[in-house]
């Protein structure tokens, strides 16, 4: 089904795509180690079959779902998105996946569900990076419901016409192209619908540096990296970073009336 997934042209960028080798050998996936080359080296220890996702909280269809329960192959589509890491580098990635809203609608969140929280697998036997508390494992991320339902938000299962390699977050991960990469949580094993804003890992670790929203914003400075510029992998020089990573037209409305310096 991956090679046949139709390209969603309206939501895809036409910029040159980052090499498959770069996409799969330069990863932040701290469960396998903090070096960019660690995930490729060690992620093969993660078993992704069978895979199940626990759905809980303010939702009608709570329960444990297998990968096949969630992912209907005929729903898969291809989308080419920019990916901007908070560390000041960026890539252009041809993802394959299902828009998250399709899956959320099937799960039928209740009227109390205002946020969604996601959790990454934390298996000490398969993930050597868990031996050191870089973060408070398991890794958690979250979105406001309208962000989760936005047409750009993708539950990705593939990359370049093939299923996701483990280092990229197999078998299923989130992709939110207007936010810093750490929001796009990998290897998801739990989805929780909540009334209150859920805990997210980087925000919990350093709330002054990593906000809950973490929208790409060149005007909000960061104590470690310039957010005004970024290096597109493969380029020698940096380029200017764009508001909402260039997706302002699509998503700016989600935040109208909010001070993005406060809610960064």
């Amino acid at each position: 089904p991956y090679a046949q997934a139709p390209l969603n042209k309206a939501l895809s960028t036409e910029e040159p795509q980052t090499d498959y080798k770069a996409l799969t050998s330069y990863n932040n996936f701290y469960e396998f180690g903090t070096d960019k080359s660690d995930p490729k080296r060690y992620a093969s220890a993660m078993e992704t079959e069978p895979w199940s996702v626990k759905v809980s909280g303010a939702v009608e269809k709570a329960g444990t779902y297998s990968f096949d329960d969630l992912i209907t192959p005929s729903d898969l589509e291809s989308r080419i998105y920019r990916l901007r890491c908070v560390e000041g580098w960026s890539m252009v990635v041809p993802w394959i996946g299902i828009p998250l809203h399709k899956i959320i609608r099937r799960l039928q969140p209740t009227s109390k569900a205002r946020y969604v929280q996601f959790e990454t697998l934390a298996n000490r036997k398969m993930m050597r990076g868990l031996r050191f508390p870089v973060l408070d494992w398991p890794y958690k991320e979250g979105l406001r419901m309208d962000e989760a339902l936005h047409p750009l938000t993708l539950l990705a299962t593939g990359l370049y016409d093939a299923p996701l390699p483990n280092q990229n977050g197999a078998p299923l991960r989130l992709v939110i192209p207007w936010k810093y990469g750490f929001k796009s949580i990998k290897s998801i094993v739990a989805i929780r619908f909540t009334e209150k804003q859920p805990v997210t890992s980087w925000n919990q670790f350093a709330p002054s540096e990593y906000g809950f929203y973490a929208n790409v914003n060149p005007e909000v400075r960061h104590p470690r990296w310039s957010q005004a510029t970024e290096r597109r992998i493969g380029d020698f020089r940096r380029r200017d970073s764009l508001m909402f990573n260039g997706y302002a037209e699509e998503v700016a409305g989600l935040y109208s009336g909010m001070d993005l310096r406060t809610y960064f």
């Binding site: 400075r221 960061h222 104590p223 470690r224 990296w225 510029t229 020698f236």
Partner: peptide
């Protein structure tokens, strides 16, 4: 890294304590 962009250097010094 900065390709001799001295204004970027200045911003880095002012904004990033490290």
């Amino acid at each position: 890294d900065l390709a001799l962009d001295f204004s970027a250097l200045w911003r880095d010094i002012m904004e990033r304590v490290y």
